[in-house]
Write a protein that binds this DNA or RNA. Structure first.
Lengths: 336, 336
DNA sequence: TTGTATGCGTTATCAA
DNA sequence: TTGATAACGCATACAA
């Protein structure tokens, strides 16, 4: 390694390494002129303090890890965008890990992150999770953790969520107002936080309007595109719903494809509403009525929340839960 | 810091730190039984070698940085997914940086990465770039770098691209075959590699069919949604094209919105084809004819290429350019 | 096969 | 205001 380090820079300037080091930190006492001389030379020689040495010395990495179930999803890429912006403004870097909804990957990622690589974690949990207790195994040494959107309710850690119950209630209400009598709820994992909360909003809205709740109108979908296609087509033909409320974006897409195949007309034969952050929802055929979460803002808030924890580990006055509001945007897929 | 480290683990086992260290690497001589004893105890105490100490000692970080212009774009999120998978399989972590097409951010990211934080960089360059020479300033100390998709032609480094010229030629040909006489080409930065290559395919296809090339049918768009909306509406009303070929996905979306507003019917009044990795292109109104790049594969190849460079810095026999093939998928937006 | 000693590049403490 | 030195946690050369 012939690259430049603090020692060579010190030699080149006839100064000690401590002085050089001081020039790169704001708080230290250092002569203004020397500082400038150092910074100039540093720029000339393209010197930068080695992050790993600093991290080792300071016991922090200025890095946060972001763990998401999937990337090819407008919601998550927007959320990450928000996280990235806030992190950068705070001088932090972000590591990305994708679980593909695989619980084992999630556990492995988290465990490996506890080696100093990251100072904190922002995570939307995998859909498969059964035993969340692994998160408690770290005891007091667990890294600061912030959940967003998909959370484990039994883990005590700050979280950023949206008003899912209300949104689901309103979404279902909207379908009822548009004349739907048999509304199916499509969900990937109904035992998971968001699947469950969203389902409750649906059930309660049905109750309010005295629409009979049918267990089999809750359609359990999977993570596989092919399987979902079959499941949804069967649901459409067997259950003959006149409205569909999907808990995640890709189930709405799958519904559209199924309807095209089966010659089911949206919205005449079937009305569709979905959670989705798709920016081009108006361009779909027909344009899709969505419950749109403020994805970027969720990411930003999650990052901010993590930073308040990092800045002040002791302070227990920080908010433990931030709830943001989603918007229902009515479009043609639920037209009367 | 009361966390566990190699020294404490050594004490707990009555061994030396070097023996512990050896247990965590495969190549070293160590008694099988001791190794197991160490690993068992390590698991019990939740010990993991500190990455920053290892990195400092070994002068490598097992981390690669990925720099992209934007995240909320199906192409890039898919590419990153591919990169992430290959990286993980190789035991590498990935850092994500988003430039928002801001050249200054790109320069800053790259410069800061040369502090040991990453072993290599995979980048799709920002659209604004003027002076690429900053990349040469690092001399022999420049980190291994792989470009994908949006490249600087004047920088000598491995790259993964698609057959953009051919695709553009075929796309234009397709529009001509569908009866278009006035085909506009929408581009964000025509001096940038992909904008230029794609334009050349367009121009040559026009020539082949003796369609007159008109300079003003090359429509220069921006990175702002609002500006593009105005630019495209003006282009539609002033230039009255009967076909549009857009170099990036979001210009196709902007075109759809503009047509909705202006009551221009696609495909009757105007046919549209675009580069796009949108998985739900069939669901658009009308379904969009696309040139679809193998985004995930591009990411995978870029990562593989970087790893061959990292594995063997000296070997100059590695491929310097990988060209993958895009697919034209004809849909209703170019129907006769 | 295991242990000892040294250094990776930096920063904090203390002395000058 | 600056310099000498130790320490962060680990991996390797060398000794045992």
């Amino acid at each position: 390694m012939d690259s430049i380090n603090i020692k060579k820079l010190a030699e080149a300037l006839n100064l000690s390494t401590s002085t050089i080091s001081r020039a790169f930190r704001d708080n230290s006492d250092i002569n203004g002129a020397t500082k400038e001389r150092i910074l100039a030379k540093a720029k000339e020689l393209n010197y930068q303090p080695n992050h790993y040495a600093s991290n080792l010395r300071e016991q922090k990495s200025k890095t946060i890890a972001v763990i998401v179930p999937e990337l090819a999803n407008n919601y998550f890429s927007q959320a990450i965008h928000g996280i990235e912006r806030v992190a950068r403004e705070n001088g932090y870097h972000i590591l990305i890990y994708v679980t593909d909804d695989d619980y084992q990957k999630e556990v492995t990622f988290i465990r490996h992150l506890h080696n100093g690589r990251a100072d904190g974690i922002i995570m939307s949990v995998s859909g498969e999770a059964n035993d969340h207790n692994y998160l408690n195994k770290f005891g007091s040494k667990r890294l600061p953790l912030v959940f967003f959107d998909r959370i484990y309710e039994d883990i005590d850690t700050p979280r950023v969520i949206t008003n899912d119950y209300d949104s689901s209630f309103l979404a279902t209400e909207h379908l009822i107002e548009q004349g739907c009598k048999r509304i199916a709820y499509l969900v990937v994992n109904k035992s998971l936080s968001i699947g469950k909360t969203r389902m409750q909003g649906y059930i309660d809205a049905l109750a309010k309007y005295q629409v009979t709740f049918e267990e089999n109108l809750i359609v359990d979908c999977s993570n596989s595109y092919e399987e979902n296609s079959l499941i949804i087509k069967e649901a459409l033909t067997q259950l003959k719903p006149d409205g569909i409320f999907t808990s995640v974006e890709r189930l709405a897409f799958a519904t559209y494809y199924a309807c095209y195949d089966l010659n089911v007309n949206i919205p005449n034969d079937l009305k569709v509403i979905s959670f989705s952050s798709l920016e081009i929802a108006p361009l779909l055929n027909p344009s899709l009525t969505t419950i749109t979460q403020p994805a970027i803002e969720i990411g930003e808030k999650a990052a901010e929340l993590l930073f308040t924890v990092l800045d002040d580990q002791a302070n227990k006055n920080r908010p433990n839960e931030v709830v943001l509001t989603s918007k229902i945007i009515k479009r043609n897929s639920t037209n009367k």
